[in-house]
Design a binder for these strands. Structure first.
Length: 950
RNA sequence: GCUGGAGUGGCGGAAUUGGUCUACGCGCAGCACUCAAAAUGCUGUGGGCGCAAGCCCGUGUGGGUUCGAGUCCCACCUCCAGCACCA
């Protein structure tokens, strides 16, 4: 018997596959009639550290999918390449005094060797490298097209500057105020930078998510990042020392319905008004602004930080709805970069304004009264029936001693709330509340303290059979003592009274109107829906419905704003694509003519970044000084380079036609291969890379280069692999698992199988080298089983035969759904069954091997050939389940007595219900529990169970 | 705080429309093989009580719906991820 030797087997088949070219996608005539399948994984940044376990997980998963589709007869293109520009290489090169290109070459060679050792079925003829001038020629070309269309523009912006990397960062590269790469606190600098107008595509990037098959959480994150919100832009006239200014200050609000509740206006420290206006306390304000701007984003945007601000003395803003003059503040809780950089403050209905108003003792004016309508349950309002209006009180009664409130729990339904009651005629709310409290609870010592507000509630009155519209005055009462008189019987039968601690009240009451009443009392700020009051002619209107009318009335306009910012595209570094533009005194910014592309990176001796923020390329006078392509007068090159995101924004298109020197890719090939059918990658790329590449793709679609509006049909994400113990793997912690060593000791097949088996693919999971022994044993058992002699004319037992068919179905579906762990488990179960058979027919063994082939390609190939096959298993047809053999002939029927399993029996499939019942009741184990009694009820689920109720 | 997702043996994790909870793997225990060990094979392995047959309890907590709940409903607790003063 041959012993399983992974090194020998894996080396042998990897070279056989390369010779036979079975993993190269078919083109032209040989592809005719074949359905194409384009799976994609994120191409790696070839770091010096080599491949990590996360790469293996993602690449193996798509490899399994790719292999299955290949066996299903599809024309599969599974490509790979190198996202090789980037800071780590440059930093490493600087440290070691070497050329980045040389370092890159070394790293990609190592990555290629590692990937090949895993037996991944990549089409190596399509390898791309973003640092290859033949590749980045087209990155530059796309940029120039954007420049042509006005999507690339230079702007003086405050940029995020990383003092350690000496580089400007995009907003997306700043995480919690720190540099995404090195963790250094980010500073702000003003610099002229190239920008890409991704915000022009915001709507389409948002809306087209509906047309693609991404994991829901990915879509949510993208929408979140784009942050689209609709609202009103309103103009407030500005007055300084009583005189009106020509320009109004524009504010953005999503709640124009609260316009009559504005008690002040706030502008961001960056707002032009702050510096351009003349007012009394300008020095004080200037000091505040300077302090605010010095703060890092992380300090400034901490929501928990106490709000600060300064009033602009002598400046006021005029409410466009009612002409009221309100003070103007500058405060850093308003962000300069969002909306208009100014807000109208409505402390009564916005938490942030409320906090600010409390601190600076500003007036709070309520213009929305909570209002709710019951829409479900038996007390839901009845359509078409009139409402009977009723004035009522809602009593918040505080304990005489403890910090608890008196609540009531209805007996007839699941309501939990406060004491309520109708206001009779002339009685005021205070008197009513005191009376109702005594009647319902017996407590006689209540004292009226204050009326908190009003809450409206529409519901169906069950007893009176009428729609009711109740207007509750929320009244706060305090008990002086626990004095109590007896409660009338009819009240007692309605509800129980309970004392609820203050911090539990909100959760205890279970209707939105009650919760709103509590919020008004406990907080004073109400942000929910309701009905307008004190809002001129809009009073009485539903707040939501009043948004647009009020906007119109105030002369504002309805607008959409985004959190998404334009993309800062310049980097002051060496190791990136040069931005192909030339600056001429006469002509301004001029594109490098297409025939002169690519603009190659010059060989430089010294390419350290500079403290001045100038690109290292700026020192290359020979390279920098050129002639203007238009007027031929002396001009200079742009010395900034592109960010790493550039090359990765379109690489999936180049795979389609990687050697094309005339075009980015042949349109016919793009027509055939794009869009990508399935793109798997890390969650960390959902907001940056995925959004950027969708943006570039849409642009290329607009200029007719690509045939579809979206680049990726489907997007999935693998969970992160953590170190043993659940921490993140990192070099500094020294807990990184090296795939090379695992391939060496366990073999690629075992590593692949383990990574696919360790847990659900989309979940984070801790590494556990000990557990690799399981998959390794399985592989050895299969290998040994393949050498077991088969007998002529052997057949599987009925059960194992059915199990094989079931396994075919399960593995087929599981791979497609990325449930690799359960696919492997069902293959293990099948092997267990095979081993118990006297003999397994060769065809059945081969079906099993084929199901396993995508997961463990080397070992299965070896066994496959040992069985006498001449062509590769990886191009053999994928098994199809034989439905006729699928069904077991007999089924186990479970018998439950009063819901507990007491017995089971086996019958032929399709046995009659009556027979099942009789058989069940006849079992000794069942009789024991049923006894002499006649069952009250017998429930029979054919083919499953009999449930007896006694 | 908001938005998603998840809590099941010693561990990673399985469980069609609600229908025998813990598949598969790891680990552990016993046995076989061996001079011995490793490897391998076989058997067992949720907790409690019991000599046993067996019974009771068990999917984060507390309620509910149902003949029957890991699965559905309500409330709560914990953990993970993303966003976070976005007006």
């Amino acid at each position: 018997m041959k012993k399983y030797d992974h090194k020998k087997i894996e080396k042998k088949w990897q070279s056989e596959w390369a010779k036979a070219k079975i993993y190269n996608a078919k083109e032209g005539a040989s592809a005719k009639g074949m359905k194409k399948f384009y799976p994609l994984v994120e191409f790696p940044f070839p770091s010096g550290a080599g491949l990590h376990t996360g790469h293996v997980r993602s690449y193996t998963a798509m490899d399994v999918v790719a292999r299955k589709h290949r066996m299903e007869g599809e024309n599969v293109m599974y490509p790979i390449g190198w996202d090789a520009f980037g800071l780590p290489t440059e930093n490493y090169a600087i440290k070691t005094g070497r050329q980045p290109a040389a370092v890159t070459k070394e790293n990609t060679d190592n990555f290629r060797r590692q990937l090949k050792s895993l037996g991944l079925s990549f089409d190596w003829l399509r390898e791309v490298d973003t640092t290859d001038p033949k590749y980045y020629k087209w990155t530059q070309w796309i940029f120039l097209k954007m420049f042509e269309k006005g999507l690339a523009y230079k702007a003086k912006t405050e940029i995020n500057w990383c003092p350690k990397d000496k580089i400007g960062l995009a907003n997306e590269e700043v995480v919690n105020g720190r540099c995404d790469r090195c963790g250094t606190l980010v500073e702000k600098r003003v610099k002229e930078q190239w920008m890409l107008a991704i915000t022009k595509y915001a709507d389409r990037l948002y809306d087209d998510l509906d047309t693609v098959d991404y994991l829901e959480r990915i879509k949510i994150q993208q929408r979140n990042w784009i942050g689209r919100s609709e609202g009103a832009e309103l103009g407030f006239a500005v007055r300084v020392g009583g005189k009106a200014l020509a320009d109004k200050v524009k504010v953005f609000t999503t709640r124009p319905d609260t316009l009559f509740g504005v008690t002040y206006v706030v502008v961001a420290p960056e707002h032009p008004l702050v510096s351009t206006l003349e007012y009394k306390n300008k020095t004080e304000v200037a000091a505040y602004v300077a302090a605010a701007r010095k703060e890092s984003d992380i300090e400034r945007t901490d929501a928990k930080k106490e709000k600060t601000g300064v009033k602009l003395e002598g400046v006021s803003a005029v409410n466009p709805a009612n002409g009221e003059e309100v003070p103007v503040f500058v405060a850093d809780y308003v962000l300069g970069g969002y909306g208009t950089g100014a807000v109208m403050a409505v402390p009564a209905h916005d938490e942030r304004d409320f906090a600010f108003a409390k601190k600076y003792d500003l007036p709070i004016r309520h213009v929305v009264e909570p209002s709710f309508e019951k829409n479900e349950g038996k007390d839901a309002t009845r359509k078409g029936q009139p409402f009977v209006e009723r004035n009522a009180v809602m009593c918040l009664i505080k304990h005489w001693d403890k910090d608890e409130f008196l609540c009531s729990k209805w007996k007839s339904n699941d309501w939990q709330g406060f004491v309520t009651g109708g206001i009779d005629g002339a009685e005021d709310e205070g008197a009513t509340a005191v009376r109702e409290a005594a009647e319902e609870t017996g407590y006689t010592g209540t004292k009226y303290v204050r009326t908190v507000g009003t809450v409206h509630s529409k519901f169906y009155h069950d007893v009176k059979r009428k729609n009711r519209y109740a207007h509750f005055k929320v009244v706060y009462l305090e008990l002086a003592s626990g004095a109590q008189k007896p409660v009338a019987e009819d009240e007692k039968n309605l509800h129980d009274v309970v004392w609820v601690p203050r911090d539990r009240v909100r959760d205890f009451v279970n209707r939105p109107d009650l919760k709103a009443a509590w919020d008004l009392f406990a907080d004073g700020c109400y942000v929910g829906e309701g009905v307008l009051v004190g809002s001129g002619k809009f009073s009485g209107m539903d707040a939501d419905g009043a948004m647009k009318p009020i906007t119109e009335f105030a002369g504002g306009k309805w607008v959409t704003t985004y959190k998404l910012r334009d993309w800062v595209f310049s980097r002051q570094r060496y190791w990136g694509e040069p931005i192909p533009l030339i600056h001429c005194e006469k002509c301004g910014w001029v594109a490098v003519p297409e025939k002169d592309l690519p603009v190659k990176l010059p060989a430089v001796k010294k390419y350290e970044p500079t403290d001045t923020g100038e690109s290292p390329l700026s020192a290359m006078t020979k390279w920098v000084n050129v002639k203007c392509p238009k007027c031929k007068s002396p001009a200079i090159r742009e010395t900034d380079t592109m960010p790493q995101w550039a090359g990765s924004s379109w690489y999936y298109l180049r795979y389609v036609d990687p050697k094309n020197s005339k075009k980015l890719a042949d349109p016919k090939k793009l027509d055939y291969w794009t869009p990508v059918d399935w793109y798997n990658g890390g969650m960390e790329h959902t907001t940056l890379h995925l959004l950027y590449s969708r943006f570039w793709h849409k642009f290329l679609y607009d200029i007719g280069v690509v045939p579809t509006a979206e680049p990726y049909k489907k997007r999935t994400s693998q969970g992160m692999i953590l170190a043993e113990g659940g921490e993140k793997m990192s070099k500094s912690r020294g807990n990184v698992v090296n795939p090379d060593e695992l391939v060496e000791t366990y073999g690629a097949d075992t590593l692949r199988l383990y990574e696919m088996f360790m847990g659900p693919f989309d979940q984070a999971i801790a590494w556990d080298t000990k557990s690799m022994i399981g998959p390794r044993r399985f592989i050895e058992r299969v290998f040994a089983f393949g050498q077991r002699p088969t007998r002529k004319g052997a057949t599987l037992s009925k059960e194992t035969g059915a199990l094989l068919q079931k396994t075919i179905q399960k593995v087929t579906a599981d791979i497609e759904n990325m449930n690799f762990n359960t696919a492997i488990s069902s293959l293990m179960i099948l092997l267990n069954a095979f081993e118990k058979e006297d003999a397994v027919p060769r065809a059945d063994l081969e079906s099993f091997l084929k199901l396993l082939a995508p997961l463990a390609p080397h070992m299965t190939e070896d066994v496959w050939h040992e069985l006498g096959n001449k062509k590769s298993i990886h191009i053999a047809p994928w098994p199809v389940a034989d439905e006729t053999k699928l069904e077991d002939e007999s089924v186990t029927i479970v018998v439950q007595v009063n819901g507990k399993v007491r017995a089971s029996f086996i019958v032929a499939k399709g046995t009659d219900k009556n027979v099942l019942e009789r058989t069940a009741l006849g079992l000794a184990d069942v009789k024991k529990w049923v006894g002499e009694a006649t069952p009250k009820k017998v429930i029979i689920v054919p083919g499953k169970l009999v449930s007896i109720v006694v």
